[in-house]
Simulated scan of single mutants.
Amino acid sequence: MNTQFSVSPENKPIFIALGFTLVIILIGTGYTLITQGAAPMLMPSYLAQQLQIGAFLGVCAAGMMMVILLGHIDLSIPWTLTAAAMMATTVGGPWAIPAGLAVGLIVGLFNGLGVSVLRIPSMIFTLGVDTALRGLMVAHTGGFAPQTEATPLMRFLAADRVLGIPVALFVWAGVSIAIAGLLSRTGFGKAVYATGAKESAAFLSGIRTKWVIVGAFMISSLCAATAGILLAGYSAKAYQGMGNPYLLPAIAAVVLGGTHILGGRGRYIGTLIGVILIVVLNSVLSIMQMPEAVRQIIYGTVIIGMLLVYGRETTSRN
């Protein structure tokens, strides 16, 4: 009997994340049955609503995975998301969404050049970019809440439903198909894995590693901008700090899905399951009325634990 698929290092975290997801669903269902006499987590309408909210995180995590596969990280996600949403609602009309996406492409290009050409550590450079974006947006709004509104198309993409299914899920599915196809069926995807595994070896083999890094950061920021446009549509407006709750969960979803934090290994299906795990965990914590501080502690603990596991694994292989 061939058990290679089930025991391979790349697939094991995926099964573990899937198992944890099912356990969390059972815990949440048991809790609501005892306290409320009902099981809302098993109702299709409730699950669709939770996945609709989770679509924003899912799009962010898809882009974050591209960067983590290279062994880098993008800490500019929160204000890239916010800046894209603010610019989209400010421009309005048919150019709203292109304006928001353009913000993501520009930020991603800047991040990629800073990391690949200037060789500044991604954690430091993207954190600086995030801070600069925050300052620009505060200057743009004068420190007050923006008075702009989302366009009808933005509201349709984020809040409406087609055949009972939230349109945001279709957007998330489209992004997922694009990222999964890019990683598994294109030369760029193979270059991402090779660069993440060993950048110097990839460069010597003829891969233009600098542009691979630039491309990955542009995809990351573009996904963040897309999430910002969707979130502004869901909220009917943009607001300062709207991207702050998405950074740590996006990283957690990617790591929980089995993508190696040091780069070179990971599958998009794992990130997808990681996002669902985070969404289900959020739902159960909300049902149990856990405060936000406890949620952040849980996210941080999970990431630290996975980092320790990956660190020990890398050390043992070396």
Rank of each mutant, 00 (worst) to 15 (best):
residue 312 R to Q: 10
residue 123 M to T: 12
residue 161 R to G: 11
residue 63 G to D: 00
residue 210 K to A: 02
residue 200 S to D: 14
residue 102 A to F: 03
residue 166 P to F: 05
residue 284 V to F: 10
residue 268 Y to L: 04
residue 256 L to M: 11
residue 36 Q to K: 12
residue 288 M to L: 15
residue 119 R to V: 05
residue 197 A to G: 14
residue 279 V to F: 02
residue 40 P to V: 10
residue 274 G to R: 00
residue 29 T to S: 12
residue 147 Q to H: 15
residue 257 G to H: 01
residue 16 I to H: 08
residue 28 G to L: 04
residue 116 S to L: 00
residue 212 V to P: 00
residue 238 A to D: 03
residue 14 I to W: 01
residue 208 R to A: 04
residue 179 I to L: 08
residue 205 S to T: 07
residue 123 M to Q: 10
residue 166 P to N: 08
residue 182 L to N: 03
residue 201 A to W: 12
residue 310 Y to V: 04
residue 231 L to F: 14
residue 245 P to W: 11
residue 189 G to E: 00
residue 58 G to I: 03
residue 215 G to M: 02
residue 132 A to M: 08
residue 265 R to N: 10
residue 186 T to I: 12
residue 291 P to M: 10
residue 169 L to N: 08
residue 102 A to P: 01
residue 21 T to R: 14
residue 262 L to V: 12
residue 5 F to D: 09
residue 207 I to P: 06
residue 314 T to Q: 15
residue 263 G to E: 06
residue 203 F to W: 11
residue 205 S to M: 04
residue 195 T to S: 03
residue 31 Y to R: 10
residue 149 E to G: 07
residue 123 M to A: 13
residue 35 T to W: 13
residue 40 P to F: 09
residue 113 L to K: 04
residue 53 I to L: 14
residue 278 I to R: 04
residue 99 A to P: 00
residue 153 L to N: 05
residue 285 L to G: 03
